[in-house]
Design a protein around this nucleic acid. Structure first.
Lengths: 212, 212
DNA sequence: CGGTATTCTTCTGTATACAGTCGTGTGCAG
DNA sequence: CTGCACACGACTGTATACAGAAGAATACCG
């Protein structure tokens, strides 16, 4: 195995392991332990931690850094922002999409259609791919960037709303409608559909909290 | 002079000097030079640079870091996002503001009324204070955080739209209307007003480009 | 046996050393 | 005078050394 650029390498791995729950919320991140884990010195670790701090994934405790934990209220706050940004992305995509953007969106959509509704990981990732294709079609790098980061916070909480009975089919239908609006360059409609699509996701998340 | 926590100290100073134009766009940031400038070693400098990189204020060049420059297109992209987020903040503020939030907003507003329309720096900062008071009233930390960062990118470009003849009075009027909507807890109206207020700012920015 | 003071350990923040890279300038040959 | 090669200088990426802070463990005294 070749030694990679430890700089972004460490950042990506650490981010991944925080998002996928390897380190759970509130866990103390000890630099030396991480250095050993990733086979580097403390220096690249510290830089990765600073970047993650800026992402809001990690915060300073009394002693060093720890994985930031998010209250249910904060999760809902994040959804509120995501709703607004997804709507913005969708209507921008309706206005500015290229022909190739549509190809990407359709591809992601068919992939999502083909996923077995029994495989939560595949479902989550296919769903995400569709959204990302739409973001890209917005041709607004800032929107893409912010939505990508928000997702780090939302995917950290395992239970996807897509696993709720009936939600998968519903999401597929909502995507279809949304994509259609984008294709026909109806910006207002695309924005509205994206908004209600994401608002539903937020409500379902709330539902999950209610039941738990 | 007491030696401060160099960690966040250096980050803040460097961010400030990038935003206010001390280092202009595209400038090469040499670690050793910065270390000398701030009287520390390279270590805190590097960590500040990593955080700024994550903020999008700085990017990796072939050789080290340089101040990221933004094309006019990108500036407009950022406005697009800001419009959406300001609308979100305003309608959230209408829904969730506390009594004290209103006090803060009114204070900022009177301060803005009292500013001489001859002093661009004071105008910009008073205007910003009003917006920040509204952000705070949204009680959505994520929105506040994102808007704060977007502002780093927008304030970097000196010419404020507020200096355009007639715009100052207009902005004051728009603020008044917006605050009124927030006070009367009319979320839809607050969102719409914020949206058009910011959209106007974007259009004026575009106007500035057109003339330049 | 309980509480408090003190030492010990651990870990971070900062500085510095070292190696590798990239660009640049200089010297040598044609 | 020009082209190429080589060497030098400047900077980053990575590792490590050192000091100080904060918590934990322990010992001492009531």
């Amino acid at each position: 195995m070749k030694e990679m650029a430890a700089l972004s390498e460490v950042y990506e791995r650490l981010r991944g392991e925080i998002v996928d729950g390897t380190f759970d919320a509130g866990a103390n991140l000890v630099e030396l332990a991480l250095a050993e884990r990733y086979g580097t010195s403390r220096t690249p670790i510290r830089e990765a931690l600073r970047r993650l701090q800026q992402d809001g994934l990690v915060e300073r405790g009394d002693r060093g850094m720890r994985v930031r934990s998010r209250s249910p209220e904060e999760i809902l706050e994040i959804y509120e922002v995501r709703i607004a940004l997804e709507a913005t992305a969708a209507s921008a995509a309706a206005t500015r999409h290229s022909d190739f953007d549509l190809i990407r969106i359709h591809k992601a959509q068919s992939a999502m259609d083909a996923v077995s509704p029994q495989d939560p990981a595949a479902m989550a990732s296919a769903n995400r791919a569709v959204h990302e294709a739409i973001w890209t079609a917005s041709h607004n790098g800032t929107v893409v960037d912010l939505l990508t980061r928000l997702n780090n916070h939302l995917t950290r909480y395992p239970a996807t709303t897509l696993e709720i009975p009936g939600r998968w089919a519903e999401a597929l239908a909502e995507h279809r409608e949304l994509v259609q609006a984008i294709e026909s360059r109806d910006a207002d409609r695309a924005g509205t559909l994206a908004r209600t699509h994401m608002a539903k996701a937020r409500d379902l998340r709330l539902q999950l909290y209610r039941e738990a």
